[in-house]
Amino acid sequence: MEWTALVATAVGAVIGVGSTLATDRVRWRRDTGERDRETLRTVSAQFLEALTEARDAISDASRSGHLPADERARLARAGILDHGVHSKQYQLELLATPEVAQSARDAAYQLLLYRDAVVAGHLRDAPECTQVRRAFREARQKLMAALRRSLARP
């Protein structure tokens, strides 16, 4: 057997193994990206759900004019805790882009301001509640827009 045939066979084997490894690496990257995107989608949905449920609890407390102020305040505070807003926010911040993490912090902060207005004794139709509720809604919309951009496929 000639040495050129042996070299050609060895070079062919190296090229074949190299292309297989490169293809596997591309597939692994794509699969990892999809898993990461799905995880972010799940955690994002959980955080948005927690924000919405806490907002609903705070809103319900602000509508309860027949309750004493301290009971409304207790209900508003419980809304944040009962739905795990902060823990879900931290989970999202660990996985998200800096833009999404900042938007999540802003939305959670605006929700806290809404809660604080209710704790201070303001009812739903009071200008103080209306203003912070709108600010929360805007912050949540910005968060959802940032999430859409983050979850878009490249």
Rank of each mutant, 00 (worst) to 15 (best):
M1W: 04
M1N: 05
E2C: 09
W3I: 14
T4W: 13
A5V: 07
L6N: 10
L6S: 15
V7D: 08
T9R: 13
T9G: 12
G12K: 04
V14L: 14
V14S: 15
V14C: 15
I15D: 02
G16N: 05
G16Y: 00
G16H: 03
V17W: 11
G18R: 03
T20N: 15
T20W: 13
A22W: 11
D24H: 14
V26C: 07
V26G: 09
R27T: 13
R27V: 08
R30T: 05
R30N: 11
D31V: 11
T32A: 04
E34I: 13
R35T: 01
R37A: 03
E38K: 01
T39Y: 07
L40D: 09
T42I: 02
T42V: 10
A45T: 13
L48H: 08
L48N: 08
A50N: 08
L51H: 10
T52W: 14
T52L: 13
E53A: 07
A54Y: 07
A54K: 05
R55G: 03
R55N: 09
R55H: 07
A57H: 08
A57T: 11
I58V: 04
I58W: 10
S59P: 03
S59V: 07
D60T: 12
D60N: 12
S62K: 00
G65H: 01
G65D: 00
H66F: 13
L67I: 04
A69Y: 07
A69D: 14
A69C: 06
A69Q: 10
D70T: 04
E71F: 02
R74T: 11
L75W: 08
A76W: 02
A78R: 11
A78P: 15
G79S: 00
I80G: 11
I80V: 05
I80N: 11
L81I: 02
L81M: 04
D82P: 06
H83G: 05
V85Y: 01
H86D: 15
S87G: 08
S87V: 02
K88R: 15
Q89L: 00
Y90A: 11
Q91V: 03
L92G: 00
L94S: 07
E99Q: 09
A101C: 06
Q102R: 06
S103P: 09
R105G: 08
R105S: 10
A107Q: 00
A108S: 12
L111G: 02
L112S: 15
Y114S: 13
Y114R: 11
Y114A: 12
D116M: 02
D116H: 00
V119L: 00
A120K: 01
G121S: 05
L123R: 09
A126H: 03
P127K: 00
C129R: 06
T130C: 12
Q131R: 15
Q131K: 14
V132D: 03
F136L: 02
F136Y: 10
R137S: 03
R137N: 02
E138N: 13
Q141K: 14
L143P: 06
M144L: 02
R149G: 10
A152P: 01
R153P: 06
R153K: 14
P154Q: 12
